[in-house]
Design a protein around this nucleic acid. Structure first.
Lengths: 192, 192
DNA sequence: AAAACTCGTTCACTTAAGTTAAGTAATTCA
DNA sequence: TGAATTACTTAACTTAAGTGAACGAGTTTT
């Protein structure tokens, strides 16, 4: 598991053995059971998550209805808004599979960044990359129809469609579960 | 104009006179005329933009149709995807008003970041903040209807609705100009 | 000044998503 | 194992967005 992490980091910066040990000594690895809720609406948490294996899901609960807006799988990180703004969380985060996470918090972030300035660099690059990727995703979402979004997802993240419940996928695509069912039926009909 | 910049920076880090002079010596300020295209599809530019005054717009051109996905106004920055990924740009950026910009490029970024490590910190904080904000925006977009999005924009960015042409606003809201017209008429009718 | 163009709106029509309800399959739980 | 719950699909109906066309107001071009 540790190797997976260091392989990932090595894409951005090179670490000495000392630095690797410093990271390991922080003891960030967590095994989480499917269904566990990591963050609830209203909570003030400083925790940040990085998925090594499994899948976590971000969702809002409005009028008793869950609205899933994001999934994070292998090698994807999530810094909840509440950890940055220090306000209560507006959303929930839960594990939809048994998951292995890195859980760090902003205080540790500050500590390790001041000890190892390299980290600051990696964090900047990572969040700039993520920001750019996110903007592309947002652009694609805005400029396409639900059907196009589904077909696009089928191309880019076929795994998600397999591992995630349909009703959670639906709100991720910005539609209702019934519409997703219908849309899938429509696509199948076209193919025949 | 310089004071506006330093006031903004002072929210994140404190600068010495030397550092301020180093920034000014880079000569980043640009006055751009309304209608100027800063970046075209297919171009490989390393330029990044920060709006001091005015408004710039990001849009895709598909099948001869412009699809506007973002506006950037005072104190908002845009690092085009092509500047990070070093691939040709998929979109256009143009000024929709006479605009004063800071234009920097990634090479300068590397130079200044290595001279002043403080900058690395500010850039990380800025892009993390922006990422979190962007995620909230994306979530809101996903979980709301075109009408709700319009009403939401009316609350949060009433200036945009004034300063931006309707047909550009429409694609920003993920709909066609005709639908925006109809939607506005519908809202007015409800109020009466 | 007339012609051409752009922009916003409206209309009629088509298509697809939202809503409500019902039914079936699959999973969880007692 | 049987009951309860949850997940997914289908259907009928409603509502809203997409489409193509037309119009007038305001600009720009020639």
């Amino acid at each position: 598991m540790q190797n997976i992490l260091f392989d990932f980091i090595s894409k951005y910066i090179s670490l000495t053995e000392d630095e690797k040990n410093a990271i390991l000594s922080l003891d960030l690895f967590r095994s989480i059971k499917k269904g566990t809720i990591l963050l609830k609406e209203g909570q003030k948490s400083k925790d940040e998550y990085f998925v090594l294996k499994g899948c976590i899901r971000k969702y809002y609960l409005t009028d008793g209805e869950e609205k899933t807006t994001a999934f994070f799988t292998e090698m994807e990180g999530l810094t909840p808004h509440c950890a940055i703004s220090k306000t209560p969380s507006e959303y929930y985060i839960s594990c939809i599979e048994d998951t292995i996470l890195l859980v760090s918090n902003s205080d540790m972030g500050i500590e390790i960044n001041s000890k190892f300035p390299k980290f600051e660099l990696m964090c900047r690059i990572l969040s700039e990359e993520l920001l750019a990727k996110q903007q592309i995703d947002f652009d694609e979402f805005k400029t396409s129809s639900p059907e196009q979004r589904y077909l696009n997802l089928l191309q880019k993240r076929p795994d998600l469609i397999q591992r995630v419940p349909q009703h959670q996928l639906a709100s991720f695509l910005g539609i209702k579960p019934q519409s997703l069912s219908r849309l899938r039926a429509r696509i199948l009909e076209k193919k025949i």
